[in-house]
Simulated scan of single mutants.
Amino acid sequence: MNDRTTPTLVQRIRYICGGTLPPQMSDWVINDLTGPGAVRRYLLRILVPILVLLCLFLLIPGPMWMRLAMMALLYLPLIYFTIALMYVYRRARLTSHGLDHTLADSGQRDRAAAEREAYERRHGRA
């Protein structure tokens, strides 16, 4: 019986490519998608590997500014849409692992509760 709670290298690569992990790794998945550093990990997993492919534009003959401009024309919208769809991606990943998709909102709920508590303390309601 496999009691691993963190993925192996092969499982991690498959997870990054969109695969699911076994149910005993649910805590790891939740932490990966909603824990500290989740946004940074998400952005790095999408934006860094694409740079390797975009470097193929450097092989096209012509002035360097034109090659870099072609790369930027693809990379800048990718950055925009990656950030815009982060919430949707996290909810979809949680759902694909059989977890509650509202876990993607946990950080926002915690911040709102802390703000509410600070407000009530400030105005003498606590």
Rank of each mutant, 00 (worst) to 15 (best):
M70G: 04
P77E: 05
A92H: 02
I50E: 02
R111D: 06
Q108T: 08
T6H: 07
D105E: 03
L54H: 13
V48F: 11
G18C: 07
P63R: 08
T8L: 06
R90P: 00
R125E: 10
L43F: 03
P63T: 13
L56E: 09
W28L: 03
L94Y: 05
E117A: 06
L47Q: 09
A69C: 12
A126R: 15
M86K: 02
N2V: 12
R122D: 08
G18T: 13
R90E: 02
L47T: 10
Y89P: 00
L56F: 10
R14G: 12
E115L: 08
H123T: 13
N31I: 04
L76C: 05
Y42R: 03
R91K: 01
P36H: 04
A114M: 02
I13E: 10
G37V: 08
P49N: 11
Y75A: 07
P22Q: 03
T34E: 05
Y15Q: 10
L56G: 14
P77D: 04
R45S: 15
G19Y: 06
M66L: 15
L21G: 09
T20R: 14
G18K: 07
D32K: 01
G37L: 03
H123P: 13
L59A: 15
Y15S: 10
I83Q: 00
L44D: 15
D27N: 11
L76A: 09
E115C: 02
